[in-house]
Amino acid sequence: MAAKMRETQIPTAEGTAVREVFPQGWEDVRGHAEIVRRLRRLASAGRLPHALIFSGAAGVGKRRTARVLARTLLCASGGDAPCGRCEACRTTAAGVHPDYFEIAPEARGKGAAMIRTEAVREMLIAASEAPAAAKRRIILVDGAERMNETAANRLLKTLEEPAGEILFILVTNAYDAVLPTIRSRAARIAFGALTRTEIEGALLERGGVPDAKAIASLADGSLGRAYDLVDTGLAPRDEALSLLTALPVLRIDEIWRRAEEFGALSHDDRMARLGFFRMGLRDMLVLMEAGTAEIFHADRRAELAALLPQTTRPRIFALLRESDALIRRLGTNVNPALQAEAFLIRARKQFQ
């Protein structure tokens, strides 16, 4: 059973506080056993480089691992894991350790969240002094791919010539989007997807998740996505599959109704429904090749298999292309209901 985790206020370079749950120890990292062993060995031997970059899909545990590593390095015991009892462990978990800094993308207005130049500058100034309580200062940059160009170049200068004992841990969901010169100065640790068994186990430990097995299948290797699905429930998924399985017999009046309902959703909800719809199409392709293979909608295998005699592989690929086009159009200034209506009319033909 994983240790209980505490909600804490994590200070950012901008001086704001983000309510987060800070992991207590390595037992709170789900999966990635080889990465954990490697980091613990390097931490204990004092052989970590001055900069690490944790890359991998969203929600697989990169930031959590980075935080446990930071807590380990700041711990007064100096071992390969945080003791959880010393003052350093307590202040790190509470988000007030003077040698720990964390920065993340910030949204302003309707613009995309990003890490701005002033935030990086303030963080680097704060971290430039000698360690106050530990042997080194630790800077965690979450969402490193979302630094603007000026911020990235400022960070690069410090990575090239770090002052004193300091460790940078950069966390990214998009490794190739990080400035190449930054990538070349940090040791990369690539995080793979979690297994369905690992995700299901984490959900069961959390408790109160009756659809844990189905959610683990839909999470696509991401525990973060699994937690999001727990919060939102499976109703959006069920609506998407209801539409897919109804396509062969969908009447025009039903198309109008469903298109209006789709248009009334928020943009994020529309994207979520389309995501589940596309997962269903990919499941059908898998079932055509190997009927016993793992699929996303594992709990709805029979319904998806029943659709196979009514379509063909080329038609499913055509429907995937149509859904791609719909996603692109919905990102522009269009009427979502009209776009959904046209899509459903074309989609129905792939089952006739």
Rank of each mutant, 00 (worst) to 15 (best):
L69N: 11
L69T: 12
L74C: 11
R71I: 05
A76P: 01
T91Q: 06
E87Y: 03
R67T: 13
T72C: 12
T72Y: 08
A66F: 08
S77P: 01
T65Y: 01
V68H: 06
P82N: 07
T65W: 03
A76V: 03
R90C: 03
A76I: 05
C83T: 11
G78H: 13
G79W: 02
G84W: 03
T91I: 01
L74E: 09
R85N: 09
L74G: 05
T91C: 00
R71W: 01
T72D: 10
L69F: 09
A66Y: 00
R85L: 13
R90A: 10
S77D: 13
T72S: 11
C75S: 10
C75M: 11
A70Q: 10
D80F: 02
T91R: 13
R85S: 14
G79V: 02
P82D: 12
L69I: 13
D80N: 14
A76H: 09
A88H: 14
L69H: 10
R90S: 10
R90P: 00
E87N: 06
A76W: 03
T91K: 11
R64D: 00
A93R: 13
T92S: 15
A66T: 04
R67H: 10
T72E: 08
P82Y: 00
C83Y: 05
A81L: 08
R67W: 07
R71S: 12
A76Y: 01
C75T: 13
A88G: 12
A93V: 15
G78C: 14
C89H: 02
T65I: 12
V68F: 01
C83G: 06
G78P: 12
L74I: 14
R90W: 09
G79S: 13
A81N: 08
R71F: 06
R90N: 04
R71P: 00
D80Q: 09
G78R: 12
T65F: 06
G78T: 15
R90D: 00
A76E: 15
A81Y: 09
C86I: 05
G84D: 07
R71A: 07
T65L: 07
C89K: 04
S77F: 00
R64K: 15
R67E: 15
A81F: 09
E87D: 15
V68A: 03
A88C: 12
A70C: 11
T92L: 07
G84M: 03
T65N: 08
C89V: 06
A76N: 04
L74F: 09
C83E: 10
C89F: 06
T92N: 04
G84A: 02
A70I: 12
R85Y: 03
A93F: 02
C83I: 10
A70K: 01
S77E: 14
G84P: 04
A76Q: 12
E87I: 08
C75R: 06
R64W: 05
T92V: 15
P82C: 07
G78D: 13
C75E: 07
L74H: 08
T65K: 06
P82F: 01
L73H: 02
T91N: 07
P82I: 06
C86R: 02
E87H: 11
L69Y: 11
S77Y: 00
C89I: 03
C83K: 06
